[in-house]
Design a protein around this nucleic acid. Structure first.
Length: 496
DNA sequence: TCTGGGGTCCTAGGACCC
DNA sequence: TCTGGGGTCCTAGGACCC
């Protein structure tokens, strides 16, 4: 649909355009949470740092309050740099002539994710109550489909609703706007933290809208306004356009969403593949993705930075700890995994990943460790600045199945060969097959092997099984944090 | 400032099978 | 022996997001 579609006709042509989607985005969520429990921090520059501990200078900015942003502090910025811009208030000793001016200093706090999750659960309770469908994107962000709860009709005289609110120039108030205001107020009242809300006929536009007037924003883009609303925005505002794509587009002379919407989609396809075509559609306000509930995770990982080291024991010790943690989390969540991988980042920032798939899904911490260490061997002698461990090809089937299907009926006492603590769903090939959802439909040699006798899991592992995981790239990338966002939302769990 | 940690999805190329 | 096209599944890396 091109820009000038008429309200009445468009809805008839395209059922999707009648949807009402909210994107709810918490403002400076971590900072807001800290202020919720420490109201005296309100109004002060506040920086919440991850990997940061009180008094330290390491770590990165997870969230900076707007007061701190006024000093130039941004998300993803190293704490050390933030401290240059905004000294720690504790250092503002009035008796010390060299100490910073208390008026020019801020508070620094470490991330307390558990607490933020508690607050987030209050927010989510409100959202669940207000939405037909809720998709939680992260701890501080969600999409709501509220089509059945509200409408694009103009608010006001219910006896005489105009055919569509999209008809009017921006000033027509819609029922959707009123409902969004209600949701926003409930969040504030019931969770105690502020949110920005974007309202639009689809997800990608709602996402942009929630960002358009932060903090405490409410931006409504009616079906007829979508393309003009997007047109003037820089391409980077479009969800899915990062620094690399932004540059590629700029090289094509495409600077704004309007440029993108007017570009040749075939050309975009040539340059950027399917993503190019998808971005073209988003720039035109065409996005028919349904709001679907958040699914189960596809991978679990843990990583940590080290000061660059080639010390083998240090590396191995780190990997052991990461492996144990990942395995523990997997078990807590009741999931098995079929692929185990590591990440090794070499200075300056070369990201390497290695992964190995098992014949069948397991829950076996010792195996995670041994495979991870084995994969690490490839980097023996190399200096690394960061290490990570990851499990993927997750399988969330009921754990009783895992136990029942365990591969040691009457065997070695409930344990897999990997080291005793494992469970595997592999004892029963039929279960294993076709369960991984990815078209794994044959009973290949690996499954046969897996069935044979449960105690031999590690046998294939050491054999470098030829099976593997499909389509699971490594998560991370070397992309630098992205500071260009005015909102300071480069990365990290929070931004806004 | 040397770049934090958790994810998702996509693509390229190779092995292997029919 | 070569040709060869289609398909699956794998690993590794890249881009992006919060």
């Amino acid at each position: 649909m091109a820009g000038g579609t008429l309200p009445g006709t468009e809805a008839d042509d395209d059922a999707g355009s009648d949807r009402v989607v909210f994107h709810v985005d918490m403002d400076c969520f971590y900072a807001s949470c800290e202020r919720l429990r420490r109201p005296e921090l309100t109004g002060e520059p506040l920086v919440v740092g991850m990997g940061y501990e009180a008094g330290e200078t390491i770590g990165a900015v997870a969230t900076a309050s707007y007061e701190a942003r006024a000093f130039g502090v941004e998300s993803a910025m190293p704490i050390s740099e933030a401290l240059d811009l905004l000294p720690r208030r504790a250092n503002a000793d009035p008796d010390d002539p060299d100490a910073p001016d208390p008026e020019e200093a801020g508070r620094y706090l470490p991330v307390d994710l558990d607490y933020y999750k508690e607050v987030a659960s209050d927010v989510k309770a409100v959202l669940r109550d207000c939405a037909d469908t809720l998709r939680e994107v992260s701890v501080d962000e969600a999409y709501l489909d509220v089509t059945d709860r509200t409408a694009w009709d103009a608010a006001g005289d219910p006896a005489d609703p105009p055919p569509s609110a999209a008809a009017g120039p921006a000033e027509v108030r819609t029922l959707a706007e009123g409902y969004a205001r209600h949701v926003k107020q409930r969040i504030e009242r019931e969770a105690g933290v502020p949110a920005s809300v974007g309202v639009a006929p689809n997800m990608s536009t709602a996402k942009v809208a929630s960002d358009a007037d932060k903090p405490d924003g409410l931006v409504v883009v009616t079906p007829g306004e979508v393309e003009p609303f997007l047109a003037s925005l820089p391409t980077a505002e479009i969800h899915g356009v990062g620094p690399v794509t932004e540059r590629t587009l700029a090289d094509l002379g495409i600077e704004t969403a309007g440029d993108l919407a007017a570009a040749d989609p075939d050309r975009l396809g040539e340059e950027l593949g399917d993503r190019g075509r998808e971005l073209y559609r988003r720039a035109r306000g065409e996005d028919d993705r349904e709001v679907t509930p958040t699914g189960l995770p596809k991978s679990l990982s843990r990583e940590s930075s080290l000061s660059a080291t080639a010390d083998e024991e240090r590396k191995r010790e780190t990997v052991r700890a990461l492996a144990a943690d990942v395995a523990r989390r997997a078990r807590e969540r009741g999931c098995l995994y079929r692929t185990i991988g590591i990440k090794a980042v070499e200075p300056p920032y070369e990201v390497n990943t290695r992964a190995r798939s098992l014949p069948g899904p397991v829950d076996d911490p010792d195996l995670v460790e041994s495979v991870a260490l084995d994969l690490l061997d490839e980097f023996a002698g190399d200096r690394v600045r960061k290490l990570g461990v990851r499990v993927s090809k997750l399988d969330f089937a009921e754990s009783d199945q895992a136990t029942l299907g365990g591969f040691d009926p009457g065997g070695d006492g409930g344990n897999g060969a990997g080291g005793g603590s494992g469970r595997s769903r592999d004892g029963d090939g039929e279960r294993n097959v076709g369960r991984n959802g990815d078209g794994d439909t044959d009973l290949g040699p690996r499954s046969v092997a897996a069935d044979g006798d449960g105690g031999k899991l590690t046998d294939w592992v050491d054999d470098e099984p030829s099976t593997g995981e499909r389509g699971e790239g490594d998560a991370d990338d070397g992309a630098e944090p992205d500071p260009r966002d005015a909102d300071g939302q480069a990365s990290l769990g929070d931004w806004s």
